[in-house]
Amino acid sequence: MPPHLRPATPADAAFAAPLIQATIGSIGHTLTGEADNEGAARVIAAFFGQPGNRLSFQNTLILEEDSTPLGLAVLYPGAEADALDEPFRARLRERGLPDRIDPEATPGELYLDTLAVAPHARGRGLGGVLLEGCARQAATLGLLVEEGNPAARLYARQGFLPAGTREVAGHRYTHLTRRGEG
């Protein structure tokens, strides 16, 4: 069976959380209040299994082949970004940490928070399969790419264009958008 997309379930947390953290890096540290990747991935796994946050299974598509997960995409409406970040802000406040989370998404777009392919499955064009699946769901699909990230080449090949820059978690990102099929 060829690779296909399916909605994530809470049971996908063990696959998804480390891959999400490996992809979002410093943003994961900022969201979770954890200084290391392992701690951030643990917190992300807990949030993944819960509804109502940006990294929830509800906002995630899993790319799989023969029932084996190969990659994922986390996406949500930009207009819901503030509400979806509130559970992370609450965690930060509980830990006595600053609860500022820089906005990434903008209203009017379906925001692609995370797109990742497992290391063993890279080089097969699966990132493009994930990106196309996301774009089919959106009139406008938006994402951020950190300066110097090689994924920028994939996004350009898939028709994403720069729409400005932002600083998030102390790093500079280019905001990209792409018109979708609607």
Score class of each variant (00 low, 15 high):
Ala121Met: 00
Ala121Trp: 02
Ala121Phe: 02
Arg122Gly: 11
Arg122Leu: 11
Gly123Gln: 09
Gly123Asp: 14
Gly123Ser: 01
Gly123Tyr: 11
Arg124Leu: 08
Arg124Asp: 11
Gly125Asn: 05
Leu126Val: 07
Gly127Phe: 06
Gly128Gln: 06
Gly128Leu: 11
Gly128Trp: 01
Gly128Pro: 15
Val129Glu: 09
Val129Met: 09
Val129Ser: 13
Leu130Ile: 05
Leu130His: 02
Leu130Arg: 00
Leu131Trp: 10
Leu131Gly: 02
Leu131Glu: 08
Leu131Lys: 12
Gly133Lys: 00
Cys134Pro: 12
Cys134Ile: 08
Ala135Glu: 09
Arg136Phe: 05
Arg136Lys: 14
Arg136Asn: 10
Gln137Asp: 10
Ala138Phe: 01
Ala138Arg: 03
Ala138Gln: 12
Ala138Cys: 06
Ala138Asn: 09
Ala139Val: 11
Ala139Gly: 12
Ala139Gln: 15
Ala139Glu: 14
Thr140Arg: 13
Thr140Trp: 02
Thr140Phe: 08
Thr140Cys: 12
Leu141Gln: 05
Leu141Thr: 02
Leu141Lys: 09
Leu141Cys: 09
Leu143Ile: 04
Leu143Cys: 13
Leu144His: 13
Leu144Gln: 12
Val145Met: 04
Val145Leu: 07
Glu146Ile: 10
Glu146Trp: 01
Glu147Phe: 08
Glu147Tyr: 01
Glu147Gly: 01
Gly148His: 08
Asn149Leu: 06
Pro150His: 03
Ala151Asp: 06
Ala152Met: 09
Ala152Arg: 13
Arg153Tyr: 15
Arg153Cys: 14
Arg153Gln: 14
Leu154Cys: 07
Leu154His: 00
Tyr155Glu: 02
Tyr155Thr: 02
Ala156Ile: 14
Ala156Asn: 13
Ala156Thr: 15
Ala156Glu: 11
Arg157Trp: 09
Arg157Gly: 08
Arg157Glu: 07
Arg157Ile: 05
Arg157Ala: 09
Gln158Arg: 14
Gln158Phe: 03
Gln158Tyr: 12
Gly159Lys: 03
Gly159Gln: 11
Gly159Ser: 10
Phe160Cys: 01
Phe160Ser: 06
Phe160Ala: 12
Phe160Asn: 12
Leu161Gly: 15
Ala163Met: 14
Gly164Trp: 07
Gly164Arg: 07
Thr165Glu: 13
Thr165Met: 14
Thr165Asp: 09
Thr165Cys: 05
Thr165Ala: 14
Glu167Ala: 05
Val168Trp: 03
Val168Ser: 08
Ala169Val: 01
Gly170Gln: 08
Gly170Met: 13
Gly170Phe: 05
Gly170Lys: 04
Gly170Leu: 00
His171Asp: 12
His171Gln: 15
His171Arg: 15
Arg172Phe: 09
Arg172Met: 06
Arg172Asp: 06
Tyr173Thr: 00
Tyr173Gln: 00
Thr174Gln: 07
Thr174Val: 15
Thr174Ala: 04
His175Leu: 15
His175Lys: 14
His175Thr: 13
His175Asn: 13
Leu176Asp: 00
Leu176His: 11
Leu176Phe: 07
Thr177His: 05
Arg178Trp: 04
Arg178Pro: 04
Arg178Leu: 03
Arg178Ala: 00
Arg178Tyr: 04
Arg178Asn: 04
